[in-house]
């Protein structure tokens, strides 16, 4: 089954909705606690990233018999240096988000850590897409 979420522009009140709903569905399916936790963290970090950096985007979760595929697509500014962006502690988050406790430079590394497959594509000026697979 497929779940689709619109992630809003700089709207923290709705950030977390996708991961929360995904979590609810996975729990209903009887997926193990550790997998649920990993999937929700990956989704949550992705949502927050889209809010902070890309002015929102679309998050999708496809749940299959043996895996969960999370896809996050935005039309934001893109990431000039991917390997730098994947470094723990590296952040380009504006101060107004850091003041809220976000932007510690752990988003992408955390997403990668919590999934089994991680693909990221980004083009400056066009946007970023992330695909994460969590095997059940």
């Amino acid at each position: 089954m497929k779940l689709k979420f619109e992630v809003g522009d700089e709207d923290f009140s709705l950030a977390g909705r996708a991961s929360s709903e995904l979590k609810g569905v996975l729990k209903r399916l009887g997926i193990g606690p550790d997998l649920v936790r990993r999937a929700s963290i990956a989704m949550y970090e992705g949502e927050i990233n889209m809010v902070i950096h890309a002015g929102g985007g679309v998050a999708e979760a496809e749940i299959e018999a043996d895996r969960v595929v999370l896809t996050l697509i935005d039309a934001g500014p893109g990431i000039p240096d991917l390997s730098l962006a994947m470094t723990e502690g590296w952040s380009t988050a504006p101060d107004r988000f850091r003041e809220l406790g976000f932007g510690a430079g752990m988003g992408l590394p955390n997403m990668r850590r919590n999934c089994d497959e991680f693909d990221i594509e980004s083009e400056v000026g066009k946007g970023t897409s992330v695909r994460m697979v969590i095997r059940l």
Partner: peptide, 20 residues
């Protein structure tokens, strides 16, 4: 221990069909 009262079906595939 975890309580499974919210799980739709012990068989994940069945649960998936139910969820849809």
């Amino acid at each position: 221990k975890a309580r499974s009262a919210l799980v739709l079906d012990p068989d994940m595939l069945k649960a998936l069909v139910m969820m849809e």
